[in-house]
Design a binder for these strands. Structure first.
Lengths: 155, 155
DNA sequence: TATTGTTATACTCTATAACTATA
DNA sequence: TATAGTTATAGAGTATAACAATA
């Protein structure tokens, strides 16, 4: 599609709307997460990290950083907080003594099903105005942002 | 739509994808904004505020806060930075001596056309995988998040 | 020499609470 | 008594740079 002022104006409107919608949704999402009275506090970024560790079972801080799309220093920060809250643990990597492996604590593993279920309920509630077909179409459209992207682009 | 685990799982996937796409886009967007060598630094939140002041011509900090969906204290912070950079100015509101009006500087007004044009180009580039029809459909779907919302919901 | 994760430091965005000046 | 915006303070998320341990 060739660039014209009209195309540009439409593009700005689409992205603007997307940013606004996401802001709005994230507000709601975080408020609902906070009101859960889990044994640990989960913000958006913390939940994202938590679920990534959970899916991997165990993972290096290194790899986690690149999957999250943040710098290793940021992972150190987040992990410090989550370890303090008893959500996950560091263990030395037996294969490389420079590296650190992360895994969830027993406690977090026991809570994870509930967390996932609540996540589904929150998400479903936020999408209450959308039919199943609309959800699928939105998913398909959003996927286009990642089209033609090298390797497994995670975050 | 009735809640089932399947609906919930789809809803989570949709929002997860939306968050990831937005993160990704915001990264690109901010990088491109930075590489513009404007006479002032524009992050996402600063641009958002700047454009809102521009559209209003003049506006109270108060009203701006509610339109941006942030607290007045946050506006003070952002405005401090933008005033330091010569982007906008505070003037006392003649109608209410408690209030402060904001307006763009001459300098910012001279740059704004360029900023808007670049914004269009960046946005168009980010949406390069989307046809005009897909853009319109995405816009329509995203609008649904705001359906049934009271008053003019801005941010 | 390169990589892993840390300490040290800092910046941006955001907020709550207490306060000042005005309404 | 209520409102507009500030000072004072804080916390989350993010980053860069220098460094120690290890590869």
């Amino acid at each position: 599609m060739e660039f014209t002022k009209e195309n540009g104006a439409l593009a700005v409107e689409v992205l603007d709307l997307m940013f606004r919608a996401t802001r709005h949704i994230q507000h709601e999402y975080e408020m609902k997460l906070e009101s859960l009275s889990l044994p640990f506090q989960l913000s958006g970024p913390r939940l994202r990290l938590l679920l990534m560790v959970w899916r991997a079972e165990k993972i290096r801080m290194n790899e986690l950083a690149s999957k999250l799309g943040v710098k290793p220093r940021t992972v150190t920060e987040l992990v410090d907080a989550l370890e303090r809250d008893g959500v996950l643990q560091r263990t030395p990597d037996p294969d490389d003594r420079r590296a650190t492996l992360l895994h969830l604590t027993e406690d977090a593993l026991n809570q994870i099903t509930r967390v996932r279920m609540v996540q589904m309920q929150i998400s479903d509630e936020i999408l209450q105005n959308f039919t199943a077909e609309e959800r699928t179409r939105l998913h398909a459209l959003l996927s286009k942002f990642f089209e033609g992207m090298e390797f497994d682009f995670v975050y």
